[in-house]
Every structure is written in structure tokens, then in C-alpha cells.
Design a protein around this nucleic acid. Sequence first.
DNA 1: ATAGTTTTTGCATTCGAATGCAAAATGGAG
DNA 2: CTCCATTTTGCATTCGAATGCAAAAACTAT
Lengths: 339, 339
Amino acid sequence: MSKENVTSTDVARRAGVSQSAVSRVFTPGASVSTSTREKVLSAARELGYRPNPIARAMITGKSRIIGLVVAYLDNQFYPVALELLSRSLQERGYHILVFMAENSTEGVAQVMEELVSYKVDGIVTASVAMSNELTNLCDASGIPVVMFNRGQNDLRLNEVTSDNVAGGRTVANFLVAGGHTRIAHIAGWQGASTGRDRAEGFSDGLAQHGLVPFAVLDGMYKREIAAEQARTLFSGAERPDAVFVGNDHMAFAVMDVLRFELGLSVPNDVSVVGYDDVPISAWPAYDLTTIRQPVNRMVAATVDTLMSRIGGDKEPRHIAIPGSLVIRGSARRPKGFAQ
Amino acid sequence: MSKENVTSTDVARRAGVSQSAVSRVFTPGASVSTSTREKVLSAARELGYRPNPIARAMITGKSRIIGLVVAYLDNQFYPVALELLSRSLQERGYHILVFMAENSTEGVAQVMEELVSYKVDGIVTASVAMSNELTNLCDASGIPVVMFNRGQNDLRLNEVTSDNVAGGRTVANFLVAGGHTRIAHIAGWQGASTGRDRAEGFSDGLAQHGLVPFAVLDGMYKREIAAEQARTLFSGAERPDAVFVGNDHMAFAVMDVLRFELGLSVPNDVSVVGYDDVPISAWPAYDLTTIRQPVNRMVAATVDTLMSRIGGDKEPRHIAIPGSLVIRGSARRPKGFAQ
DNA sequence: ATAGTTTTTGCATTCGAATGCAAAATGGAG
DNA sequence: CTCCATTTTGCATTCGAATGCAAAAACTAT
């Protein structure tokens, strides 16, 4: 069947047409008669021809590749997003080229430059922040960038997040309604918009009830750091009766410390609420009450933004998709609580 | 600094040399004098030039892209492997192009054809099986394929696995040494070599002690199916006193069922042993005794194989890296057990 | 200084498909 | 059946870097 290097010229020869004709058959929207199309198509089938994406990219300047910059995959939220994103792009004839970055400015910068030189059609950054000059670079290169699950407040960039401020506020309301009074927050990384916004919404929400956080500690979105903060939080004489953790990944670590190191019962002694609703949260071992970030909708919005920017739309989008509270067993349930 | 589309010709003009000279500066092993090299390098720096990988791929036929075919990312083993693989390849100037595949023959076939047309330098398949004709396609295309964590027993393909038979046997020995007598196996997908090998080693190991498995059920590497099989397994009058589960991902589901649906204590009522040693296994909520697949070594071997095959080595490699038993709290500990 | 050797350099071509342009073929109207 | 409009087609060029080849430059040895 399929030979090794079948080119459009081979197909052309076999079909008795010009190379241009072959190219046009495989270029959507090009003008070809039905008869040539069929000749070409059958010749192509016989030879096992597929247009070479590299050569195509060379001439069109469009690689049909989307660069994904991501810093870590241990937080389950990202593999899930990656899978959805990849599948959705694949349906549209795009693929994801993965760039792992350190979440440091230089690390990201280096990766981004490489990305630009790859002439990708678009870039998605996940769990990664961008410096100002980096934003300039991207902007100058003309490659659309979508920041997934992170905001930059830069008008030139697209971002897709969930409404983190509202989410934080919902958690505050929920915990207050549950009768908690000493509510602490092990926050997401304060260098990231998500971390700050969730913390802000949370403090805001408490304030509406005349409360202040018992404590706010930065868990840096890292399991180990969150665990350490949990230990600190519970080392004093007075202990919190509820902890809002900046994401599920850290919340699991916090629950582990509370239960297995401090011997506390969740939710009887302490309520724990997370953020993301990764699949593990639904596992009965954690059964975590959390704010659901609708990954599928976030991914859809990301793809949508990407496609329309690639299509020429110049208007940057800042999309915040509302999350919703998923009530499970890790936090005391208020009676008749409405979000 | 960096302008939009700087080509080697721009740099050449600026440095007062020919385009070839510029190309040679960026081609390792090409002959350039120190003085031209410096002129070119500084001109390149000033203009923010980077060689266009697409054009380079066009002429050399080497894209410096490795295609990764993967079916699911919800089993933490794969995101972890992906991250390691990506970082390791990145260091060598390669990147990963992701192809999500259904784990069906047609799905994989379609994806593979696309992959071949992308002229990737190599292909890694993870959690994916390949049909015979697919193997032919790859073989004919001349693109090296490494099957990660799956074997095919096909002499033309490279594979990197852990020694699954030995791992299964170790588990059997361990559980027998722990005094268990009714040892069941919720196996990995029997359509996959890993699933079969682990099951085989396990039965083998039991046989050496004159035992037979209490039951062997196929969990298909799916959380839900494993949970269902656990329910079945424990629905009869006689119950197993130990369960070896085909991978950690399923083992978590099984433990959840045992503890939260059946109210059993692990390991007091039932011992559970997994396979993989994904990070979650070390979380105290599961504290899972399991066989460690040394992901880092497996990834290293994968990269190594890939590089040498790309470098022209024709000899297919079948690498099985030994795993080791990680004893944690989910299974009764035998006294003085040596692997 | 000269002839011979090695290194460096530029020219021109190549990879494979897409596309502007003009020629050819087709279609429709009169 | 002719003439004009439209569609289809092929030719030639293009994208950006790599490379074989031959010319030029730099060394080496005599």
C-alpha cells in the first residue's frame, strides 16, 4: 500500500494532472473540477499519499500546531485539561506541541522564544505566568496566546479562567453558613492571579459577614508546602474550625495532615473546602467539597478563542466562566444553604 | 529587539556574509571560521534570529518532533511519564506532539497515519496497543517507534516496560508470606501485555506455593470497572483476604469500595497491593503497597532508544526494567520478608 | 616565494506544497 | 454557432534553511 515518500508530484504524475491540481484538491476552498478531484483522489489513495504538513506549513506559514506551555502535571487539573484540549483541537486538525517550563520568568521566556520560532499557530499557557516583555514578544510575533486558568490583566492577551473571586466568595458564604467562625485559608500561589483572586473573594465574602480570616497562608500550589502550612496553622493553641484551600491538589495534602498526622476528623473537627473539582475530589477517601471549575467549558472557550484569533479576530478576550460549589462530605453542611 | 520574521538571509546581509554561512553557523559540525561565526552570531543576536525549525525540517527531513500517542491521562502514571519524557526530550532539542487516541485499532491507526505524515522523527506510544498492519506501516515509514509500558512481542518494534511478570510474582510471594490464603486478582486489561504479564507472574508465583488465585477478574485499567469487579468479588459468601490489583489507579477504586461501601478495613480485613507506585500511592489516605515501576528509568530508556534509533541504529530493543516492591500500609506486612 | 594541502566560502539547488497569473477549457446567452 | 463570462488548469515562483560542488582563501612545507 503506502510507500515511503509519496509527494504531490508523484500523485500528479499518476493522475495525469499537474502538481498544482493535486495541491488544490487538498486545499479546502480551491477550485477543482469534479473529474480532476476524483482522478487525484484515487491516485492519492493508491499511492497512500498525504500532504506533508511541514511543506504546507512552510508555504502557508500555518503549522496547525498549537504550543502548550505547562509547568507541572502533578495537579490532576492539568492532565485533564490537556486531554480535553488535545482532543478538541485534534477534531479541528490541530495538534499540541508540549513545552514544559519552569515557572520562572527566564524559564518561560526561553520556552516562549522557541515556541515563536516554531511558528505555531497559537499558544496556550497553563499554570504559567508571563512577564511583560514576554507579552510584548508574543504580541510582536503575531501569534495568538491564550492564558488558560490564569489572568494577566493585560489587554493584549486572551485569558480563560473561572470566576475565581466569585468562587472564593461562595466558599466564604458556605463556611459561614455552616456555622464556622475560625476560618483559615491556605491560599493558592499569590504570584498567580487565580491564587490572589480566590483569596480576595474569600476575604471579601467573610467581610460581608463581619468576619476576618483566621489566617491566610500561601501554599504555593504545592502539595508539600500546603502540608507544611497546615501544620503551622494547627500548631497554635487556638485552631481553625474550617480551612479553605486554594486548590484541590493542596486540599488533599491538607486533609492528609489533619487526619493522619493530627488525628483530626474531617469534617467533624475541621471542615475543608477545595477548588477545582478534579476527579480525585469525588473519590470517597477525600469526598471533597469544592468549587467546580468547569474544565470542559474552559477548554471549549480556549479552543474557541484560539480559533477565532487564528481566523483573524483581533479583539482579545477575557473570559471568566462561573464555577459552582460541589457539596460533598469534607465540610459541615449548612441546613438549607443556597449558593 | 526581536523582529517578526528574521530569516537567515537577513542575518547574512547584516553580517556581510552569505546565507550559507549563516546556515553553517547554526548547523553543528559544519565548517566555519571563527571570525565569520562571530560576525554571524552577533548579527543574529541583534536581529533576534532563530533558525526556522519548519524550514530546517523541510530540508533535513528531521523535524525534531516526537509524536506521543496516548489513550488516557486519568491514570496518574501517564502524566508523570509525559512530564519526564517531555523534559528529557526538550533537553535534547526535541519536543512532543500529542496525539490522543481511542484505544481501538481504528482510532490508533488513523492517528498513526497522521503521525507518519507529520514526518516526526520518532513515535512513542503509551497505553496503546498496535495491530500488526499498523506495525507494518510504521516499519515501512522508517520512523522509529517505542512502545512505552506495553509490549508487542514484535521483533521490529522497540519496547520499554518494567518486568511485569517478575512484579506479579513478587506480589504473590509477598502476599503469601503475609499469611494470606484467598488471594484474588483484579487484573489489568487482558488485551494489554502489561495486564497479561502481571496476571501471569502472579498466578505463577502463587503456584510456586501450591496456591491458585481466589479469582481473577479483568478490571480493564478502568476505575469504574475495577470498582464493579471488587463488588462482585466480595459479594459471595467466601471473601478473599487479599487483592492484587493490576495498577494503582484501579487499586484506589478498589480500596474505596472496600472501605466506604463494604465497611472493610484495609489491611486488617483485606490486604490490597497495586502496581505502578504513582505519587498518590504514597498519600496517607491510601498508603498503598505496590510495585514501583521506575518511571524515570523507563523514560530514560525510552529516550535512549529513540535517540539511538534516530541516530541510525537498526537493532530493535526490548527493554524490561525491574520494578521493586514498595511496602506501605495497605497490606499486612510479613515478618522479615525479603523480596 | 612557490607549490601543494586544507579549510572556508558562496553559488545554486533542493525539500514539498501552495498560489498569483495567464492560458485553456467550459458554460451560458443571444 | 459565436462571443463573452466563468471556471479550471498548468506554469513558474515562493517559503527558509541545508548542502554538494567548485572557487577562493588560508595554511604548510619546501
